[in-house]
Each structure stands twice: as C-alpha cells, then as structure tokens.
Amino acid sequence: MRSLKVSALTIAATALFAFSAAAADGPGVSYGQKISEADVKALDIDVSTSTGAGLPAGSGTVADGAKIYAEKCVACHGEGANGGSMYGPMHGGIGSFVTPKRKLTPGSMYPYAPILFDYIRRAMPMDSPQSLNDNEVYALTAYIYSLNGLVKEDAVLDAKSLAAIKMPNKDGFVVDDRPDVKAVRCMADCTKIKP
C-alpha cells in the first residue's frame, strides 16, 4: 500500500516535471507537415563538395562548355574567362597565395572541384539562375577547370571524374581558431594604436 502511494506520487511528480520541461525546452506543439525526401527533390541541389555526394548523373565536355560559355557567360566574365564587364578572371592564381597579391579563382581557391558545379548550378547565369541542365553545368565546369590547367582539353566530366580532380588548395584551409589576439586593457602609458 505504502509503495503504491509512493509510486503514485512519483508518477505525479514526473508528469509535472515533464510538463515544465516541455514548456522550457520546446513549444509543446508540432505544426510541421510530414513529407518524404522525394518531396524535396526539386529543391535538393546541394553538393557535399568534399565527397561529391549530391552530384547528379550526366556529363559534359570542355568543348561543349566553351560553346555554352560563349553564349551565356562571356558578357560578364570576358573572353576565355579572362575577366569581363562585371567580374575578374576565373583562371590563374595558383601559387599566388604566398605572395602579397593573392589571386582568387576557382582553380587557385577551391579545395574541392565539385564546388564549381554546385555554384554554377545554384546561381549561374546570374540573370537566369537554375536554367542550365546538369550536362551543361558539367560542361561549363570542365571548360573553366581546363582554363586553369586542372583537366585536359579533351576531358569529359561526370560525378566521378569531377570529384577525383586534385585541387591545388585542398590543404589551404585552417578551421577557425580565434581568439588569436590577446590584447591587454592598458589604461596609462600604453603603446599607441598606431605604434
């Protein structure tokens, strides 16, 4: 009898705790509509660029990329991706990061080759994003990497061959390790702001 009483109390206390915990940690309601992964397919455009997961089927050649580039990209990025009316060059710069003038291009900067595919597919051409099919995106990616000397002129890129490209800046990144500066709260006779 006694033990029963204790359990009842314990149950009541637990229920009360559960209620207050819900109020503190969550809304206590759920309004999300259940869907499946298939329902998100049209939006699911991202590539996990370090592995290439998310790269679609299809392929493209450097030659096809050059043609598409001449039609849809050259106005802003210039002939041969040398830089155009809006944006700077998209090739070169490999090795420049140890000089005072770092030149950032897909070839010099991207640690993983699928980054270019992901970016073109989601955002380019700027005046008509997401209008290219996957073969066209592979072709443009092949063309830009060929200008950077990272694939041969007869290259055909697909999910496998794109993810296999070795990028010069693969080991160029360090993860945030700040605070990296330890300033002192000096009040008198301090080093001036511009020493």
């Binding site: 660029t49 990061f97 992901d118």
Partner: peptide, 18 residues
C-alpha cells in the same frame, strides 16, 4: 558542405598562404 560561400568567400587570409 564546403560551398563557394565558405571556401572562396567569407574566409580570412592567413600567413603562409593559408
């Protein structure tokens, strides 16, 4: 995901070309 927006952009130049 290591997208363009977190590799080629929004990263900070560090010594030794990093």
């Amino acid at each position: 995901w290591h997208l363009r927006s977190e590799t080629a952009r929004y990263t900070d130049p560090m010594p030794d070309g990093k």
